[in-house]
């Protein structure tokens, strides 16, 4: 009888080992996981002094208003991770113009054959003025168009306010991109 009691005792302990309770869990929730990181990245920048611009303008015998230009190949959206998960991009630009010339800052987003993908971005930076925080936001269809860009053509149109060029001052352009990602 004692042996039987012992065996029963063991049996119940064994059961306790095997059977445990558990709260209601829903593992399908993992399907809902979506990360939405916000990435801040420095973007295009340049600094030009009035002196540099004038030297170039003089050597090229350019007549005001004149334009200088730089083309940069930046195939950023070729990366499939960015291409698949980017839902919005904000490009923020600051300009500081301490020269005596009015300038127009232009960024053209173009594809391989120099066809514009989205409307060019341009703004005026009048002489001796700072213009911080000019934001362009791309999402939805605009973003899809922007993603086709493989090159950026930056232009600076200089319109001297006086008949003679002044050599003082600096034009500084800073920009950053804020990338909103959604990773499902």
């Amino acid at each position: 009888m004692k042996a039987l009691a012992e065996k029963l005792f063991i049996f119940f302990i064994a059961i306790a080992f095997v059977i445990g309770c558990t709260s209601e869990l829903d593992f399908d929730q993992a399907e809902d996981l979506s990360l939405e990181p916000v990435i801040e990245s420095s973007f295009i920048f340049y600094q030009l002094s009035a002196e540099e611009i004038n030297t170039e303008a003089t050597s090229q015998s350019m007549v005001a208003p004149f334009m200088i230009r730089d083309t940069v190949a930046l195939d950023l959206f070729n990366e499939s991770f960015l291409n698949d998960n980017l839902i919005r991009i904000d490009i923020t630009r600051d300009t500081e113009n301490s020269t005596d010339e009015d300038v127009e800052v232009v960024f053209n987003y173009v594809d391989d054959s120099f066809e514009p993908t989205v409307a060019p971005f341009s703004f005026d930076a009048p002489a001796n003025t700072d213009r911080p925080g000019i934001v362009t936001s791309y999402q939805g269809e605009d973003l899809e168009l922007l993603k086709r860009s493989t090159q950026i053509v930056a232009e600076l149109v200089v319109s001297p306010t006086q008949s003679a060029f002044s050599d003082s001052g600096l034009i500084e352009i800073r920009s950053k991109a804020t990338l909103y990602l959604r990773i499902d």
Partner: peptide, 26 residues
Amino acid sequence: SLEGVELLFPGIDGAEEDDDFWQDLL
């Protein structure tokens, strides 16, 4: 360490034309 994509504008301060500079750097 990187501050972004710097434009040099060909011709200015002796900068040479190299459209692919940043693409190559990346």
